Structure formats: structure tokens, C-alpha cells
Simulated scan of single mutants.
Amino acid sequence: MTRQLQVMTGIRVVVVALVAALLVAGRVPWWFAALVALRELVAGALLLLRRRHEDGPLAADAIAPAAGGLLLAGLLILVGATGDGALGLLARAFGWAAAWWGLGLSWAAVLASARDVRRLLARPAGGRS
């Protein structure tokens, strides 16, 4: 496993753990947690398909690290966003903004990976294009 893949796997584990903790604490809605979980399942399935047929990088590999970092940053801000004052309100606003952007970008990366895996599966068994 390459160093970059180890870091990305670590970020994913931390994101899932943070979402689970925030869900249990009642700080994120269940549907947000479901979107994150579904994204991880789809990304995992695509990675398995990709590894089975090819080991090269996909186009979405450039988007995924930024998306994961942004989602992680947003969740960490939400962890610290306590209180009803102006600072808490501001922290929640920035935390949710970063979390939504990160989740949106990560879904964009998954869709780009799905497109690439579909192309990979459509080409002849021995051929490279």
C-alpha cells in the first residue's frame, strides 16, 4: 500500500468515525450520515472493481484528497461548534459549509471514478486504450 493510499484510508476512517460520533451526539442528521456511508460503500466497490481490472490512477484521484480534507475540516469544526453565541453560530455555519462542500466534492470524485470504471469494464479484456 502506497503512502498516499494509507493517508487517504486514514482520512476516510476518521471521517466515518467523526460522522458516527456526531450522529450519536445528535449533531448531524441521520441522512447526512447515510450519504457519507453510502459514498464510502460506493467508493469501496469502485476501488475493488478498479483493482481487479487495472492498477492505474483514475481521473478522480486528484479530487478525492481535497474532498476528504474539506469534509474532515468541516466535521472537526462542527465538533468544536458549541454554544449559542455568535462564535458558535459562526462555527456551525463554516463547519456545515465545509462539510457540504467536502461531501459534494467527494460524490463528484465517486461519479468520475464510476465513469472511468465503466469505461475500463467496457474495453476488450486484453486491450488498453
Score class of each variant (00 low, 15 high):
Gly95Tyr: 09
Val13Trp: 12
Arg27Ser: 09
Gly26Tyr: 01
Ala125Met: 02
Gly95Met: 03
Pro57Phe: 08
Ala21Arg: 13
Gly44Ala: 11
Glu54Trp: 15
Trp96Pro: 12
Val24Asp: 09
Leu41Met: 15
Leu105Gly: 14
Ala45Leu: 07
Leu41Thr: 13
Val110Gln: 03
Leu76Asp: 06
Gly126Cys: 02
Arg51Gly: 10
Val16Tyr: 02
Val16His: 02
Trp96Ser: 04
Glu40Ile: 02
Arg39Pro: 00
Gly88Asp: 12
Met1Pro: 14
Val36Glu: 05
Leu47Ser: 14
Arg39Val: 00
Leu120Arg: 05
Ala21Tyr: 03
Ala59Pro: 09
Met8Thr: 05
Trp30Ser: 10
Ala99Arg: 05
Ala108Tyr: 07
Val15Phe: 07
Leu120Tyr: 01
Gly83Gln: 13
Arg51Ala: 10
Ser129Gln: 06
Gly127Phe: 01
Arg3Ile: 02
Asp116Val: 06
Leu120Asp: 00
Asp61Phe: 15
Arg3Trp: 05
Leu70Pro: 02
Asp61Gly: 14
Leu87Cys: 01
Ala81Leu: 13
Ala108Cys: 08
Gly88Asn: 15
Gln6Asn: 10
Arg115Asn: 01
Gly56Gln: 05
Ala64Leu: 11
Gly126Ile: 04
Ser106Arg: 13
Leu120Gly: 07
Ser113Asp: 15
Ala33Thr: 07
Trp101Asp: 07
Arg27Leu: 06
Ser113Gln: 11
Pro124Thr: 00
Leu76Trp: 13
Leu18Trp: 09
Ala25Arg: 15
Gly126Trp: 08
Ala45Glu: 12
Leu58His: 05
Ala62Pro: 02
Ala73Pro: 15
Leu76Thr: 02
Gly26Cys: 06
Ala62Phe: 03
